[in-house]
Amino acid sequence: MKLRIKFAKHGAMKFIGHLDMMRFFQKAVRRAGIDIRYSEGFSPHQIMSFAAPLGVGVESDGEYMDIEVCSMTSAGEIKEALNGVMVEGVEILSVTVLPDNARNAMASVAAASYRLRMKEGGFPVEDLADRLAAFYAQPSIPYTKETKKGPQQTDLKPGIRALRAEEDGSVSMLVNAGSSGNIKPAAVWEAFCDYAGCDIPLSACLLTRLETYTETAGEDGSRLTALSDVGAAE
């Protein structure tokens, strides 16, 4: 049986990288006594896959992983068992049973939403909402990415689905994620700071991923759905 697990990651846990989070959950599943399915072969491993890696230093309310179990009583009990073995800063938000034919979490990811706010006070930028809007209205948003092969010019614009200032003083954005082209919110912010001529390092901000989405085709075009809405909550 396939399960989709949604979790939040806050506080000091934002410094635990993606691979270490995977190791953390492998151990947590054993501590919780979940009857997880193992692969065949001499060194069997748990059937577990994560949706979209989260950068170190970023918090999240919308992280996902899929696991397969051989048996269970209910999704609710899995959630409770896992929450019983978590550390401070990681919370299981929901456990959903997936239809057997569901695509795995990683293959499903299309976009992710983020919120950026200053750790203390509001952004020291005048007319933030207008300037963000003007920045986003540009036909293209050039950004120089540092890669192993050296600096590389890219255009962020096609990957940004929404960008605006919220009434509470934070900045929200919805960007492409997953294999179809991943946009880092840090890159968007850096490009904006360059554009607006301000110097607000990301380390002075708190960046939170709010939700991870998949794209489903409908009659009126494609639309975004939270990964947790794919299955049927039990």
Partner: peptide
């Protein structure tokens, strides 16, 4: 400070909070 943790290798060495 987050700022310092972001500037060093393997910040997880210094944050505690491990299981048990």
């Amino acid at each position: 400070d987050d700022d310092i943790l972001m500037r060093i290798e393997k910040p997880a060495r210094y944050i505690g909070n491990e299981v048990n």
